[in-house]
Each structure stands twice: as structure tokens, then as C-alpha cells.
């Protein structure tokens, strides 16, 4: 466990908490893509099946359970509790465009052809693109609430910190997982445009709106 990994996990957790607090305080999920949140719930569900097969550490188990619970509460908030505030019209990204290639790729390119490993690979590939419905929604409406941009910032920061973690692990432990690294790079690239807008607009006190 290195500093990048810990900070990465903390910013991932922080992102999810920011989103939940935003929805809970405003009693609204306006501007949030329910589809992205369903994908994240699917990501955690398919990735953390090893909770049932192996014990790694208390930290590992507790964090996996917290992530799962947060993801499902978020989906519940959007589709059940505050569903009237959900902007269904603008959340129009076609999920099959992500799910079909990701499923196919996880069968083709994995560490071993076993159910758990294929599901883990599926979750890694899916996570790298799961934010696209949310980014698509923002590009469609042309704006995002500031708190939503904080959520996106910490979610992107988490994966960027994991990249640093992998570089660190490669040099110190000779650890290298090609599937995770390649997907992680792809995932981080999707946030670059947003990071630029976040730094040039949101951090200067302006609302994120697209021209």
C-alpha cells in the first residue's frame, strides 16, 4: 500500500460521498446520469465477487463493501426515492454501445478464462467507459452544477492516482497488470478535457458551461 493508492481510494470514496450528499441535500438528482450510476453498480458487483472466495485484508473487504453499498444507494436515490427529479430525457446514451464491446473484449482479452476472472476483466473494461453517459449528458445540456463537477473531479483524480500507484508498484514490487493499466490510462484520458474545464472555470468560481 503506497501513498498514491491510499489517496486514490480516498478520492474515489470522496467522489461517491459528494454525489450522495448532493442528491440528499438538494432532494434532487438533476444533472446526474442514472445510466452511469447503474454501470458503476455493475462494475462493483462484477469486480468484488472475490469477497466470497478470498480474504485479502480488513481494509480491502471494508472498502469493497462500502463502495458496493454507496453505488446501490445512489442508484436507489435516482430511480426510486428521487426519480421525479431525474432528467431521463437528457440521459439518452445507448448503453448497448458500451456493454456489447466491453463484454466481447472481456471474453477475448483476460488473464484466464474462468467466470470470476472474466467478470473482473469485464468490470475493469466497463469502469473505463462508465462515465461516458454522464459526460454525454453534460455535453447535451451544456452545463453542470458545481457540486457535480467536484464529483467528477475526484472520480477522475482517483484513476489518475491509480496510474501513479501502478508506476510505483512497477518500480518497487515489479507488479504490473496490463489489463488494469491500459484500461486505467483510457479511463483517465476521458477525464482530461473535463480536468481542463474544471481548472480553468470551476476553480475560478465560474459555473461549468459549455460554449
Amino acid at each position: 500500500m503506497n501513498i498514491f493508492r491510499i489517496l486514490g481510494d480516498v478520492s474515489h470514496l470522496l467522489a461517491m460521498i459528494i454525489l450522495l450528499v448532493k442528491i440528499w441535500r438538494s432532494k434532487s438528482c438533476a444533472g446526474i446520469s442514472g445510466k452511469s450510476q447503474i454501470l458503476f453498480a455493475l462494475v462493483f458487483t462484477t469486480r468484488y465477487l472475490d469477497l466470497f472466495t478470498i480474504f485479502i485484508s480488513v481494509y480491502n473487504t471494508v472498502m469493497k463493501v462500502i463502495f458496493l453499498v454507496c453505488a446501490y444507494i445512489t442508484v436507489y436515490m435516482i430511480y426510486m426515492k428521487f426519480h421525479k427529479t431525474f432528467d431521463r430525457e437528457h440521459d439518452s446514451f445507448r448503453l448497448e454501445f458500451l456493454l456489447v464491446p466491453v463484454t466481447g473484449l472481456s471474453f477475448l482479452e483476460n488473464h484466464s478464462f474462468t467466470p470470476l476472472e472474466i467478470l473482473w476483466t469485464f468490470s475493469i473494461y466497463l469502469e473505463s467507459v462508465a462515465i461516458l453517459p454522464q459526460l454525454f449528458m453534460i455535453s447535451k445540456t451544456g452545463e453542470a452544477e458545481t457540486i457535480t463537477t467536484h464529483y467528477l473531479f475526484f472520480l477522475g483524480l482517483y484513476r489518475a492516482l491509480y496510474l501513479a500507484n501502478w508506476i510505483w508498484r512497477y518500480h518497487t514490487e515489479n507488479f504490473y497488470d496490463q489489463i488494469a493499466v491500459v484500461s486505467g490510462v483510457v479511463q483517465t484520458i476521458f477525464y482530461c478535457d473535463f480536468f481542463y474545464l474544471y481548472v480553468t472555470k470551476v476553480l475560478k468560481g465560474k459555473k461549468l458551461s459549455l460554449p
Binding site: 474515489h12 472475490d50 478470498i54 480491502n60 474462468t114 476472472e117 500507484n165 514490487e173 507488479f175 497488470d177
Partner: peptide
């Protein structure tokens, strides 16, 4: 490490 049947990363 990242074994086939369990992962230490989240």
C-alpha cells in the same frame, strides 16, 4: 498481489 482468484486493488 493480483491473483486469479482475488485482487488487492479496488
Amino acid at each position: 498481489g493480483q491473483g486469479v482468484d482475488g485482487k488487492d486493488e479496488l
